[in-house]
Each structure stands twice: as C-alpha cells, then as structure tokens.
C-alpha cells in the first residue's frame, strides 16, 4: 500500500481522476451548506444572527487540527519509510493548515467581540490554538531553512511529530480547564446537543472544508511534482 503510492507517476494518474470529483464535491457542499447556514437556518435564541459565524469557525478549527494530524502522520511516514510522496504531502499540508488555523482564530475573534465583549481572552483553548499556529509557522520555516531540501524535510518532520502533543491538548482543553470557550457539542457520548436545523449546515460545511483540503492538497502536490520534473528537464538541457 505504502510502496504503491511511492511512485510519483501512479500518484499523478490517481489524483488526476480524483481532482474533478473533489472540486465538484467541495463546490456542492460549501454551496449548499453555505446557503443553508446563511439564509435557511434559524438564528440562535441567545446569540442571534452572530451564530452564523460558527458555520465557518467550527469547520476551520476542525480542519486546523485535521491538517496538523495529516502533517504529523505524513511527516512520520516520510521519516520512517523515506517515502517521497509523504514528504511532499507534509510540505504541501502545512500552509493550508496554517491558513485554516488563522481563519479559526480570526472568526473566533470576530464572534468573541459581540458575544464575550472582547476580541481575545487567554483561555486554554485559544492559547493552545495560537500555539498550533506557531507550530505551523515553525514547521514551514525549518522546512525551507536548509540548502539541502532533504535535510529540511527530515528536520521539520521531527518537529511536526514532537508538536503533535499539542493536538490532544487542544481537543481536551475545554474539558481539562474551566474555559470561556464552550465545550464540545457535536462529538459527545450522549449525542450532539445542536438542533438538526443547525447541525446539517454545519456538517455540510465541515464536509466541504475537508474535500476542499483534499482538493488543494492534491493540486499543491501535483504542482510540486511537475515543478520538480521541469527542474530536472532544465538541468538535462543545460548539461547537453
């Protein structure tokens, strides 16, 4: 399975099939979910219309953690099996994850101002997500800090794996500490505590954000593979 995808040509072929599907699913789910979220879902009885920020905030926060998990797993696979496509996936994931993290922080601040009366509080959930953002930045900086790209990939892979300790901390921060941020309301032992009219658009948005990530990840990886091929061809021509 791992070796099967280590072949860049096979990877290009497979992602060539998958790309249009991912793009279509993304547009469909974000389109329908966005419409339901913005126009066709009830305002919250306490928060009023600001609750609609949640339909962007929650999916971005989920994706911020999902991307970091992807990053850490691909980094580990790249480090352990010297898997070239996994290294590529890790490098391509980082900027996307950083953007999702920034989006989660930004929408959280925009929601916090009218609801909590402040843009930012130093509670455990917000702080740990901010650390996640710094970890993404550190990963990208370390990845590009070496003249030899292979060394950069390995060094940053170790950092990504070490930084993974932060992900469970983010997940449990609302349970371990008494935070201003509300605790989980979708994945719970006793079922979601959100009403269906709000749950469906949220789930659609989460699905759409996930396929968007898959789409952009494939695009970025394909672009890097093609860029590498172009570089090799230029070198070949220069040698002639």
């Amino acid at each position: 399975m791992l070796n099967y995808f280590a072949n860049p040509r096979r990877f290009m072929k497979l992602t060539g099939y998958l790309l249009p599907w991912m793009a279509g699913l993304t547009i469909l789910m974000i389109g329908v979910g966005g419409y339901l979220a913005l126009f066709n879902s009830p305002p919250d009885y306490q928060q009023g219309e600001t609750v609609r920020i949640m339909y962007v905030h929650v999916p971005s926060a989920w994706m911020a953690m999902f991307c970091y998990t992807t990053l850490a797993i691909s980094a580990a696979v790249g480090l352990i099996w010297k898997h070239p496509v996994a290294d590529l996936a890790a490098r391509a994931t980082a900027p996307v994850g950083a953007c999702f993290t920034f989006l989660a922080l930004l929408t959280g601040a925009l929601w916090g101002k009218p609801m909590w009366g402040t843009w930012w509080v130093w509670d455990a959930r917000l702080t740990s997500v901010l650390i996640l953002f710094f970890l993404y930045l550190g990963y990208m900086a370390l990845n590009s800090a070496f003249d030899d790209p292979g060394r950069g990939a390995k060094a940053s892979a170790i950092l990504a794996i070490v930084g993974f300790v932060n992900v469970p901390i983010i997940k449990s921060s609302v349970d371990w500490w008494n935070t201003l941020h509300q605790p989980a309301s979708i994945i719970r032992m006793d079922g979601p505590t959100i009403h269906g009219d709000m749950l469906w658009p949220l789930l659609l948005m989460i699905g759409g954000f996930s396929t968007y990530f898959g789409w952009v990840l494939m695009l970025r990886m394909r672009a890097e593979l093609i860029a590498g091929r172009a570089r090799a061809r230029r070198q070949l021509q220069a040698e002639r």
Partner: peptide
C-alpha cells in the same frame, strides 16, 4: 536541545531556534 539539534547547519539558525522552541516552552 531538540531544537538545537534540528537547526544545525541551517541558515539564520538563532531566529529559527526561537520560532521552533518558544511555543514548546509555553
């Protein structure tokens, strides 16, 4: 030490070290 090991041979090592390590110090 983990960060110091990772940045050996990197460009702009000092600033990079701060970026990598300070979040883990928190």
């Amino acid at each position: 030490a983990l960060g110091a090991g990772l940045i050996l041979g990197a460009r702009r090592g000092g600033v990079l070290l701060a970026l990598l390590i300070l979040p883990l110090f928190i």
